[in-house]
Write a protein that binds this DNA or RNA. Sequence first.
DNA 1: GCGCGCTGCGCAATCCGTTGTATAAGCACT
DNA 2: AGTGCTTATACAACGGATTGCGCAGCGCGC
Lengths: 182, 182
Amino acid sequence: MSLRHAILVLLQDQEASGYDLAREFANSIGLVWNATHQQIYLELGKLNEQHMVSFRHVPQEGKPDKKLYSITEDGRQELIRWLKKPAGPARIRDAFMVKVAGGQLADSGALLGELEQLSKQRRERLATFEALAQRLDEQGREENLYSYLTVRRGILDQRAWLQWAEEVRQALEHASVGLPTS
Amino acid sequence: MSLRHAILVLLQDQEASGYDLAREFANSIGLVWNATHQQIYLELGKLNEQHMVSFRHVPQEGKPDKKLYSITEDGRQELIRWLKKPAGPARIRDAFMVKVAGGQLADSGALLGELEQLSKQRRERLATFEALAQRLDEQGREENLYSYLTVRRGILDQRAWLQWAEEVRQALEHASVGLPTS
DNA sequence: GCGCGCTGCGCAATCCGTTGTATAAGCACT
DNA sequence: AGTGCTTATACAACGGATTGCGCAGCGCGC
């Protein structure tokens, strides 16, 4: 259970609403830990009850009011405590990979189409991360060291995936030559 | 929910016991989809009720009896149906990455130690995958195409991680020069 | 004028997944 | 003789995660 810790890490830099956090989970941190808005709102509620975060109401015009959360001293202590003990093993659930593994039964054309679509998403993400890395570098890499390293992980991950996708594309195009396209 | 589909993919090649599957989930497929033995036994039970797998009792001496499961025609149909529809997004839970992102509060020394340990595991995995890839290649890459591509994904993933780890190591060693080790 | 998408919050039900416990036999080490 | 690992299966309890639903107003395009 370290969704709470991921939230605390994000709140360390700046106060944020549940909605803000949900967006960050969909982008940057999403590469490493994902969560939906329902999960985040629930966890923020629990963290508040346990005095690890506090919030202030911010009325807005044209938009719904929001709650801006910030980390408390208790929250910071909990984060430090958690950082000290070894992290649990990384877990993944990649349905597309399962499909590739079972590819004999699949339609190569459909698989290639899906691969193209995912590649497009990965290329976009790569561009975003590269821009972000450059920005952090210009601002001073030392001050943003941990953010910079996290983004680097994202970049290397996207590149590795895209390289693999290229291998798959070539292999499947070869394999589907002369086969029915259906 | 595609633990069931991962199981069906594995059973496509050969019949296996719950224990066999658990081992495969801990190794090869574990890179892509992980599951514990309890989860697997439970899912096998459900798959059996829904006539997607069948099993035969195999009495053993010196060891407990086992149930060897194989995929049925219904199971194969379900797999094909699932392969046709687009895969859900990949999900990850990497607690160590969360720790790096929140690294300002952490002890660099401890983080470096954990990094070393994880690197060792990754290097071992890389060696296993490289050996497996070579074996598949010698047996004929065409016949084992989908297994080969899955293993390639594993190799590229480990290499990318190790490259990143090297960057982190250098950055943290720089950063911790002159700082208190506590 | 109508639908769609974005911003923003939240509840409820159900399903998935983890953790703990249990049984049972052989083998290796101390 | 005791401890712990491996093979092999399984139940029960709890907590985490997904899915479905609901409210609410603004802006954009057709």
